[in-house]
């Protein structure tokens, strides 16, 4: 199953574009449909595809569990931290207006930051869940 040449080549061609599309959806969410949730899922699906074709162990080498675990927490931390920053700047929690010199710019930066946090958490959680499920069935086969 690991040796399908066509699948491997096609996956290798597709994965960079999936990652790029994920980033586009992430950072273009202000202007078109999309945002952190969708981008996170698309980003994770690139790793899922890699794991499906090359095996979960290889994918775990590409993106180690420790990185994913840090990512799960980091995203929420970025989100919550944005709120704390706006608290420190004298506004309400998660009010982004004081983050820049004028309110619309601050809103832009705030939305960008929280969407980034959402994206990181969603991508890490999705990849983690898949690795746990798929990795477990592969381990069971080894026994």
């Amino acid at each position: 199953m690991i040796h399908h040449l066509i699948l491997r080549v096609v996956a290798k061609l597709l994965i960079p574009y999936i990652l790029l599309f994920g980033l586009y959806v992430q950072f273009h969410g202000d202007f078109g449909p999309g945002g952190g949730f969708q981008a996170g899922v698309i980003f994770a699906s690139a790793f899922v595809l890699y794991a499906l074709i090359y095996g979960v162990e290889k994918a775990r080498q590409v993106i180690p569990d420790a990185v994913l675990r840090v990512g799960i927490g980091l995203g929420v931390l970025i989100y919550g931290g944005t709120g704390v920053v706006s608290l420190l700047l004298g506004a309400n929690y998660l009010d982004y207006s004081p983050l820049a010199h004028d309110a619309p710019h601050g809103q832009h930066i705030g939305i960008f930051a929280v969407e980034l946090g959402v994206g990181i958490t969603v991508a890490s959680v999705m990849a983690t869940i898949f690795f746990q499920f798929a990795g477990r069935s592969e381990r069971d086969e080894e026994d």
Partner: peptide, 25 residues
Amino acid sequence: PKTTVPNVVTSVLASYRGYDTLGET
């Protein structure tokens, strides 16, 4: 006018409804 974000869904989700989205995350 307030956020200059053209996609209203994004500004509602992340700005007006920031608490909800934090909860979802």
